[in-house]
């Protein structure tokens, strides 16, 4: 049932894209292929998804169709909660990366992943996350001179000092 719902939603999304894309894409010198090509692709995708949904619906037992959304998507399951929390934490990390810098923020996300995936010792978790961040930072900053997010304000000044620590 979950697959049916997701495929249905995806078909709807692609339908919206088909209409919106066709309307918003400007044509240059009468060359219609600029919007025809993706539209044909979208039509084919929608067709495939609708066909798949019909097949799924036919196969679904009637008791499956009566299940609640929470039941279908296992919203009460602990693993689903952890997964959703991980997505939220990761999004938060990415959003803050440009403001708080790579070097400051990465140990925290590493620690989160390490602890969530079964580490029991906080000390080991903290040391490993710092080591991983430091190793990657050293290779890319000092070894390859590749810039990583520096943050803003005072953090930026600090990370820049750290970057030029070894000349």
């Amino acid at each position: 049932m979950a697959e049916f719902i997701i495929c249905g939603l995806l078909a709807l999304f692609f339908l919206v894209m088909l209409i919106a894309g066709y309307v918003t894409t400007a044509v240059f010198l009468g060359d219609e292929s600029v919007r025809l090509y993706p539209s044909v692709l979208l039509l084919a995708i929608i067709l495939c998804l609708v066909l798949h949904c019909v097949q799924l619906w036919k196969k679904l037992p009637s008791e499956e169709k009566k299940r609640s959304i929470a039941d279908i998507f296992r919203l009460k399951d602990r693993q689903t909660h952890i997964f959703l929390l991980t997505i939220v934490v990761t999004i938060l990390y990415f959003l803050l990366l440009d403001t708080l810098s790579f070097v400051l923020l990465t140990p925290f996300i590493c620690l989160y992943y390490i602890m969530m995936l079964g580490e029991t010792s906080w000390l080991k978790g903290i040391v490993t996350s710092i080591l991983i961040t430091a190793a990657v930072y050293c290779v890319f900053i000092y070894g390859l001179h590749i810039r990583l997010p520096r943050g803003t304000g005072i953090i930026r000044e600090l990370t820049m000092k750290l970057e030029f620590l070894f000349g």
């Binding site: 918003t24 894409t25 044509v27 240059f28 600029v34 090509y37 692709l41 495939c48 998804l49």
Partner: peptide, 29 residues
Amino acid sequence: LLTIASGLIGLWISTIGQDPMTGQARYTF
């Protein structure tokens, strides 16, 4: 069916951005 749909989705994602031939914006909104 779903594998072909997947391939088509990939092809569609590659059309997002500037059109490689005319430079028109597609699905950028």
